[in-house]
Simulated assay, not measured.
Amino acid sequence: MARPFNRRQAHENQAFLAALRRTGNAREAARSLGFHRSTMVKRRNRDAAFAAEWDAALALAHARLNTGEPAAKAEAEPHVIRTASGRLQLRRAQPRRLDRAAEQAFLAALSATANVRLSAAAAGFSHSAFYARRRKSPAFAREMRLALEMGYERLEMALLEAADPESYREDAWRHNDPPPLPQLSPGEALQLLYLHQKEVRLQAEPPHIKRRRGESREAHSFRLSAMYEAQQQRAREAFDIAEAERRAAGEPSPFGPKVLPLPALDQVKGWSKADPAKRLQDRDRPMFGGWRIGDWKEK
């Protein structure tokens, strides 16, 4: 399997394919991006997927030229569908249909809001359209999950900043006179203390791992195991993404063998020189504690 393109090359390939769908000429498409045609041909020969997208772009450009469609329509990216017979087929873009630009707008909004419905409205489509795209495209499912995680982390950072005692964003109530307590009987007061004892005095169990009502022990254990496996899978995927970015940046692997510096040759000593009368080491006789066993027995 050929080595995948880095991020810069992948974006260049997408721009070249868009120009190729518009012009139908590989040399002109490469020239419009400031590349030589041979550069894109080498990439085509290197990657079979890019070669297939190249051929599909040429077919779409020729179909547009033969039918007389406007060039603006050719800039929209085609999409792959599965027919009723189960065969995959490439079709031209249709108006008001999800394309790459709508997906990027949705992902950008999702990374800022962590709200799928709001992000879909910002992109101009319904949320069900993006859920359907997630089910059909593993790549979009990965990017949607990453965008949702980024939006979640940004909101979490905002909440953590508000939780900082030095932020003074939520402490207005502490500078006001507390309202009077309502009339409570001793039994009602004890009941309130009992209800909030775990949350105030003890450490409450996180809600996502708490055993649900009516859930058996086997189902609870299976759910926790599935959650752990999902966390491990996300950790492996995050590691793969970090490795791909490291290779694209040309950085050395932190897990590679470390080359230890060799000591200076003048520090490499032979047999001990502390006793000049000591005989040289006999390679056929074993040593023990810096002494030859024979010398040790003689003493």
Rank of each mutant, 00 (worst) to 15 (best):
A59M: 02
D164E: 14
F125L: 06
P180A: 12
P178N: 05
T39A: 13
A230N: 14
D284I: 10
A129M: 03
R31V: 05
E205T: 14
D240F: 08
Q191L: 12
R246L: 10
A61T: 07
G34H: 02
R117Y: 09
L110H: 01
A121G: 04
R21G: 03
R44T: 12
E156A: 09
L280K: 10
L224P: 03
L195T: 15
F288T: 02
D275F: 03
A235T: 13
S253I: 08
L98A: 01
A238F: 13
L98M: 08
M144T: 10
R43H: 10
A244M: 09
G187K: 06
N13L: 14
A56R: 13
G270W: 09
E103Q: 11
R97S: 04
S272V: 08
A129R: 04
A76S: 09
G24Q: 07
A172W: 13
Q197E: 13
F255P: 02
Q94A: 11
L260K: 12
E153I: 10
L190Q: 13
L146E: 14
I293D: 02
R46V: 01
L202P: 00
R21M: 08
S32M: 12
R247S: 08
V268W: 04
R3C: 08
R87S: 12
H220T: 11
E53L: 10
E156G: 11
Y194I: 06
K299F: 06
A147Y: 01
D99Y: 00
E12P: 01
N66I: 06
P165L: 04
K258F: 12
L265W: 04
R169I: 14
Y152Q: 15
P165D: 06
L33N: 05
L260P: 03
H220Q: 14
F125E: 06
G289H: 08
M150K: 10
L60K: 01
T83H: 02
N45D: 08
P165A: 02
E103Y: 00
L98N: 00
Y168T: 09
A29S: 11
A10N: 08
Q197K: 13
L146K: 04
A244D: 10
A59I: 01
A30L: 05
D284Y: 06
M40E: 13
L17F: 05
H196C: 05
H175R: 09
A162K: 10
R92P: 00
K73S: 06
R292M: 03
H36L: 10
H220Y: 12
S85L: 12
L90Y: 00
W173H: 13
A132I: 07
P276K: 05
S137Y: 09
A147E: 02
R100H: 00
F16Q: 00
L280A: 07
W291T: 07
V268F: 07
A189T: 13
R100F: 00
D99R: 01
Q14E: 15
A63N: 13
F255L: 15
Q89C: 15
E251W: 03
K210G: 13
Q89G: 05
Q191K: 10
T23F: 02
E75K: 06
I293Y: 03
E53Y: 01
A102I: 00
Q281M: 03
A264D: 13
L90S: 00
L280Q: 07
D164W: 07
R31N: 08
R21V: 06
R100P: 00
D282K: 14
K278I: 01
S85R: 14
W173V: 14
M150G: 01
P252T: 11
